[in-house]
Amino acid sequence: MYREGAEQGLSPGLKRKWWTERKKEIFSGYLYISPFFILFAIFGLFPMLFSFYLAFQKWNGLGTFKYAGLSNLRFVLEDPLFWKSIYNTILFGILGTLPQIIVAIPLAILLNAAWLKLKGFFRMAIFMPYVTSVAAVAIVFSVIFSEQSSGIMNVVLSYIGLEPVSWKTTEWGVKVAISTMVFWRWVGYNTIIFLAGLQRIPPDLYEAATIDGARPIQQLWHITLPLLKPVIVFVTFLSTIGAWQLFVEPLIFYHRISGVREEAMTVVLYLWKEAFVNSAYGTASATAVLLFIIIAIFSILNLIFSKNIGRVN
């Protein structure tokens, strides 16, 4: 303590004080960050660790836990519906995310054009879907993708000479309908993120390229896209993590959990059904653990991938 005071060059009077400036600062620092860590311990860390414990127990929500060994994990891994839910989640992820990136980048480039009029309006309009709740989106789209041939999507199809589709009962009908909901709600958000990335590119790069005679398409290929790479990685990362958590859209598309068909079953829906419909908290937790492992692998792959891209630049 004496040394500390001396190092900080405090006056001799302060040196002997027990409640020093340094201690005050340490105290304030820990006090200010403690709410986050306390709440996270209760509602984040503990539940997660407890999920790992529950995954090896048999419990129906009442009574005591019974050790069940690996039987929960085995039950989930042997359940064809679980594998179907994994397959669906991956497919929804690809169909919902990839078109988003393909549409959002050109859209952001258009919205960034200096000569564009009504810029504020277009940005606002394209961002609006993000403001809508997932529940509302799912309800509206379940009407748009109605089974009947009078459903608005089927009417549109009939105008261009196509047969009506059973959006709720066929493998690809379901996939397209639910991916469209995801696409519609998130494409504007991602466009704005790409727009932010574009605005970070120094304009003198384009000026220099223009003077050197580079055509717009060359500028796009050699300046815009390479410099946008970190943002593309960021968006892909968030979208893939988000894709694994798909839940609300299929639930509301079929009105109630018992109505969800296997074409639309996702991993979180499977977990929720096991827990809150079947009261099988052990198998539900085993599903959570498996989901945790999947997301961890995806995050690590993403990190490695983005590190490599960083090195190239």
Partner: peptide
């Protein structure tokens, strides 16, 4: 502010951002 372990705590905070909350859904409910 300066306090011991600041960087470690901040690193922990960043790690928690990557954990989807759904994983603890059932114990949270309990």
């Amino acid at each position: 502010l300066n306090f011991p372990g600041k960087n470690i705590w901040f690193g922990l905070l960043l790690v928690t951002m990557m954990v989807p909350t759904q994983l603890g859904l059932i114990p949270s409910y309990m």
